[in-house]
Design a protein around this nucleic acid. Structure first.
Lengths: 155, 155
DNA sequence: CTCCAATCATTTGTGGTCAAATAAATGTGA
DNA sequence: TCACATTTATTTGACCACAAATGATTGGAG
């Protein structure tokens, strides 16, 4: 197995992982009525109390304009609530409703579910290896240095 | 670093990898006027000649209804073309236009960018480790998907 | 040959994501 | 004080992704 083949394989596997994550989100939605971002936001709100929209977006690593829609849907479901921030007229405070708090007690942790079962069944060594590999990927992909566009040799 | 922390970290890193992939798609779009799925579809069409919509969706691991929009946009840009399949009235044949073929010659490989740059700069051992870890992840995640499908198809 | 199930592309609806533009409120410097 | 840049949330527009429903076509069973 040559190097180009390895890199090709990494890309293919990444796409498959992304795909599986999306299906997992749909599955969570079907079982709990919440998509993965919605559940994650709910969990974050339950942890850090009322948050401004920007702070919540930051916590979830999402664009603020993306966050608006997610919060809208949580509000539509009666799980979260927007309130004006008395200290700063620009800000809002997003908090959980009683219903949201109740649901949070029953819902799975965002990083939980059948997917985690597979990881839990692995040896510690395996888990650490995956974590280290992903950490390397994140570092590489989030590296700021650009350029270097045209030097991939295809077979 | 405990085990739960490792699994937490894996999820966090997965989200960041997904995020980076999305930004990469936007970046490709800004540079070449093509999003990652569009570029990938173009590349696949240039490889395997005219394809039916379903076959193309299969090649990209996308839902057929998703593929429709991507092909629409490629057609709007004059890069691809739908033709009725003379042998089967239900099927269409999606092919590249001359313009599409010309663009494909200049466009980067779909699996290009920051990530490839980083991977190429790594040691072989590192690349193999990443590949193996992702392979394990894919097996676990796709196995869970199969379980879910089996579980939900029992009615 | 006819009826009917399977296949294929598409449409519709929901949701996620970003960037860019907008509006309101805040804070700051002259 | 007042003009102006900054911050914050939102809207708009484009794209991606899926599931479910639809319409047309095909192919097989009787």
């Amino acid at each position: 197995m040559d190097r180009a083949g390895n890199i090709e394989g990494i890309f293919r596997d990444l796409r498959r992982v992304v795909h599986a994550l999306e299906l997992y989100s749909k599955d969570v939605n079907a079982r709990f009525g919440l998509t993965a971002p919605q559940l994650w936001a709910l969990w974050e709100l339950g942890r850090d109390g009322p948050l401004a929209l920007g702070a919540l977006a930051q916590a979830l690593q999402l664009h603020p304009s993306t966050m608006v829609g997610v919060v809208d849907r949580l509000e539509d479901k009666g799980l979260a609530l927007r309130e004006p921030d008395p200290a700063d007229g620009r800000r809002i405070r997003i908090g959980l409703t009683l219903k949201g708090r109740a649901l949070l007690k029953q819902a799975p942790h965002p990083a939980q579910g059948r997917l985690v079962h597979g990881l839990q069944a692995m040896s510690d060594r395996r888990v650490v290896e995956i974590q280290r590999a992903l950490g390397t990927l994140v570092r590489v992909m989030e590296a700021e240095d650009l350029d270097a566009q045209f030097f991939f040799s295809e077979t």
